[in-house]
């Protein structure tokens, strides 16, 4: 009963902190010389007021959800994985390579799963490296993952400017289109089954983390490494496993970007998605269920940013300010607990 009350209070507090953020941003808008009520109503009506807008929000949010879940898994093991970005990009790269060079002749029901596996392996490879650096050489994973994000961009650039470049692209740095049969099926015009995969993975992760023995051990490691060591839990191996699973999920997000949205790899594919996913995870206090909603919120804000840009003339970076204010106010709410 008490727990239930606490839950309601929690949701209420989240709502209040969102409201505070909206008010603060409103002041910013007034200073910028626009009517905040206009902007807010446009943001809502033009994105959530029609099927296309909602579809866009869902498509945008899908990778955020996946990266957020990945970040959560690492966080439960006591690791701050900021590498969702690089792992996603590398997953996009490996899945594109697989699609272009190996799977072109395969039918959907074999090709798509294999492409997903390729993406997951790419992400795992990248996070696994960071995991080994952390566990074997005691290198700070927050720093290594950030650095590896930049290396991942460069690897993608190297590929799309080089061997992976589409011969028919008039020298644009992008890969050839993947085979049409490798595109993810759609559940709504423009919206692939990616969102369903993301939500299912998020639910499964939540279930495993909170109910299974493995999740319990992971939480012990994240809570107090010494306690885990004294309980005979293999800390190093478990942390590497957590990192590998994180990488696989981020890599899958990259594959979904290619097979569900873009259809080909560009140097810009997935840029910043990893960081938004990271934000979503921390806004949700590393709860994979709550991360679905924070990811959707961030998705909504980034789509509505474009709307604001078009309709009011404010640069779309303005919504990033709103995003930052929201994050800060949610962190503030957590601090009060």
């Amino acid at each position: 009963m008490i727990k239930k009350l606490k839950g309601t209070k929690d949701i209420l507090m989240t709502f209040v902190s969102l409201l505070v953020a909206v008010l603060v941003y409103g002041i910013f808008l007034i200073i910028s010389g626009v009517n905040p009520l206009d902007i807010y109503s446009q943001m809502i009506t033009q994105t959530l007021g029609n099927g296309y807008g909602i579809g866009q929000v869902i498509v945008k949010s899908t990778p955020f959800i996946l990266v957020a879940v990945a970040t959560t898994i690492s966080a439960k093991a006591g690791l701050v994985n900021v590498g969702g970005e690089g792992q996603l990009v590398l997953g996009a790269l490996t899945s594109t390579i697989a699609a272009v060079f190996l799977l072109d002749g395969f039918p959907s029901f074999i090709g798509i799963p294999l492409m997903a596996v390729a993406g997951m392996l790419g992400g795992m490879f990248w996070s696994g490296l960071a995991g080994v650096m952390r566990v074997c050489w005691n290198m700070n994973e927050t720093l290594t993952t950030v650095i590896m994000n930049y290396i991942a961009y460069d690897i993608v650039a190297y590929a799309v400017y080089g061997r992976l470049k589409d011969p028919e692209s008039f020298n644009w740095p992008m890969s050839p289109k993947i085979g049409a049969q490798l595109k993810l099926p759609e559940i709504y015009p423009g919206v692939s089954i990616g969102i369903i995969i993301a939500v299912v993975i998020s639910l499964t992760t939540w279930f495993i983390l909170s109910k299974s023995t493995g999740g319990y051990k992971l939480r012990v490691i994240g809570g107090n490494v010494e306690a885990a060591r004294h309980a005979g839990i293999p800390v190093a191996a478990t942390q590497i496993k957590a990192f590998l699973i994180s990488g696989a999920i981020s890599g899958l997000a990259g594959m979904i970007e290619i097979a569900g949205v873009e259809g080909r790899l560009r140097t810009t594919t997935g840029t910043n998605y990893g960081y938004y996913g990271f934000l979503a995870a921390w806004m949700a206090w590393n709860n994979p269920l709550a991360a679905i909603f924070t990811a959707l919120l961030i998705g909504f804000l980034s789509v509505s940013g474009n709307v604001v840009e078009i309709s009011s003339g404010l640069p779309s970076s303005c919504t990033k300010i709103l995003m930052a204010i929201i994050l800060l106010s949610i962190l503030w709410k957590g601090k009060k607990k």
Binding site: R219, G223, N224, E226, A227, H230
Partner: peptide, 9 residues
């Protein structure tokens, strides 16, 4: 506290 207690559990 150092060796066994997991915060929050």
């Amino acid at each position: 506290k150092r060796d066994n207690v997991v915060p929050g559990m």
